[in-house]
Simulated scan of single mutants.
Amino acid sequence: MGIDWTQMNVWAILAGGALYMFYGAIYYSILLKNKGEFAANESKGPGKYAASAAIAFISSLLIGILVVSAGAETWISGAAAGFIVGLIITLVYLKNSLFGLLSRRALFIAAGDHLIIFTLLGAVHGIWS
């Protein structure tokens, strides 16, 4: 199974990366008004914002590859592919929380974030495929 790079849409990758950053800024500013328990673990300096932007575009690219490889041609099939990725990530977070590596609050915040954004990224790529 190869990747048909001609099917990749640069605009979808860019739009997905921008959507990820916009969504993340809103999602986390609402849910983390009071960082409380998370403040001690936060990275210092502006590098975290550059890394977050890079991760947004890399995530969009990878979801785009998955959507194209899966042959998803509608926003619904793209969203389904993205939801599956979000669900896998959520299951990993759930397992980590069972062993005390993640608080219950952190689990719900991270799980909600990934379920929503990867579903949205899949939909974006499905629209443009």
Rank of each mutant, 00 (worst) to 15 (best):
K95V: 14
S77D: 00
E37C: 11
K95T: 15
L62T: 09
A81Q: 02
N96C: 14
A12S: 09
V67E: 05
G16A: 01
G86I: 03
I13T: 08
F83T: 00
A18G: 08
S59F: 11
I55A: 15
Y28E: 08
I76K: 09
W128C: 10
A70L: 13
G78V: 12
K95E: 13
I13E: 06
L101V: 14
S60T: 00
S77A: 00
A15R: 02
G100P: 01
M8C: 05
A70S: 12
G24Q: 00
A70N: 07
I89R: 10
G100K: 00
I3R: 10
F99H: 15
S77R: 03
G2C: 14
I63L: 08
A72G: 01
A70P: 11
F108C: 06
S103E: 01
A106H: 05
G24S: 09
S129Q: 12
G78F: 10
I88Q: 12
T6C: 12
A25N: 13
M1G: 14
I58A: 08
G112T: 05
F118P: 00
A53D: 05
T74N: 07
G64K: 04
L87P: 07
I63P: 07
G112D: 02
N41Y: 15
Q7T: 11
V68C: 02
I89L: 15
G17S: 01
M1C: 05
F118W: 08
Y49C: 09
L87F: 08
T74F: 06
I127H: 10
L31G: 01
I30Q: 03
A25F: 15
A40F: 13
H114G: 14
A106N: 09
L32E: 09
A50F: 12
L94V: 15
L120Y: 07
A51R: 12
V10L: 04
N9E: 09
L66K: 09
S103Q: 04
N34T: 12
A106C: 08
M21F: 08
I116Q: 02
S52Q: 12
A50R: 04
T90C: 07
L98G: 13
N9R: 06
Y20D: 11
I30N: 05
L32Q: 08
E37V: 09
Y93F: 04
A18R: 03
I58Q: 12
I63K: 07
Y20S: 02
G47L: 08
A18W: 09
W128A: 10
K35I: 15
G64L: 04
I58F: 03
I84A: 13
M1P: 15
A111D: 04
G86K: 06
W75V: 09
A72R: 00
S43A: 13
L115T: 03
I55Q: 15
I76P: 05
F108K: 00
I58P: 11
H114W: 13
N9A: 07
S59A: 03
Y49M: 11
I65R: 08
G82V: 01
S69M: 13
Y23P: 08
L91M: 14
W11K: 14
A111H: 01
G64D: 09
M1L: 14
K44T: 15
W128T: 10
L98N: 14
L14M: 01
G126C: 00
L107A: 11
E37S: 10
A111I: 05
S103D: 08
L87K: 10
I117H: 05
A54C: 13
